[in-house]
Write a protein that binds this DNA or RNA. Sequence first.
DNA 1: AGATTCGCCTGAGAGC
DNA 2: TGCTCTCAGGCGAATC
Length: 272
Amino acid sequence: MPELPEVETVRRGLEPQILGKRFASVTVRESRLRWPVPADLALRVVGRRIESVDRRGKYILMGLDSGDRLLLHLGMSGRMRVLTEPLALVKHDHVDLQMQDGPLLRYNDPRRFGALLLWNAGDAVHPLLADMGPEPFSEAFTGDYLWERSRGRQSPVKTFIMDGHIVVGAGNIYAAESLFRAGIRPDRAAGSVSRKQYTALAGHIRDVLSEAIAQGGTTLRDFVGANGQSGYFQQDLWVYGRDGEPCRRCQTVLKRSVIGQRASVWCPRCQR
DNA sequence: AGATTCGCCTGAGAGC
DNA sequence: TGCTCTCAGGCGAATC
């Protein structure tokens, strides 16, 4: 499932291939994504040039010379393939974006949790992005920031850092891994975690994400090419998906519970 | 405002 | 073999 590192990997794969290109044609075979694909998508993008390819949280943003912004979210199961030669359609190939003198972008999304939206409001940011927390690699994201935002909060620290209004990019996998590295139990009340611990945690969130992005580079070709995916981060996981197995640090059996509707695994000895 | 729950989807895997 | 059930998960929206 695409988390921030994968989205960044996709963005980096897309950018060099589509920046400066114009859309030649658009085919929407299934418009029922998380929100309907705009009915006037083709009308608004064909002939337009892509001037920027950015990322905010898990959204990829393409700025067009018309002032429109194309928002792409991969949801849980979305993939954007970059095809330089024709490839037979497969199930769930919902949208094709053909570039002039460039590749075909083919969006496939079995679960249809993803989104493809247009936004044009000058400098105003899309409502979906407006209330987002800081990027984990930005200067605004610090231990002090987490500490301040968490005061008085009773909900679990794992839920807290997974809240996109607090910080973007800490999905279930990376939240679990950062909390392990920081030695913090995921079910601790967010408000009970010390400033010092949040400083460590903020660092670990950044580290985990940047390590994963570095690994994503290996997978870049798979995303960009005709193929789908291959495993990336599983090799370096300390706790995610390892419930019942021994902790890699202390051999204690890892525990599993549901926190904020999400499966969570942690080491009862290493995390307090 | 913060906390909690719901809903959208399909595919994989378990159980019968 | 084939059916049914459960779970997974991002995250906005609704509710408490």
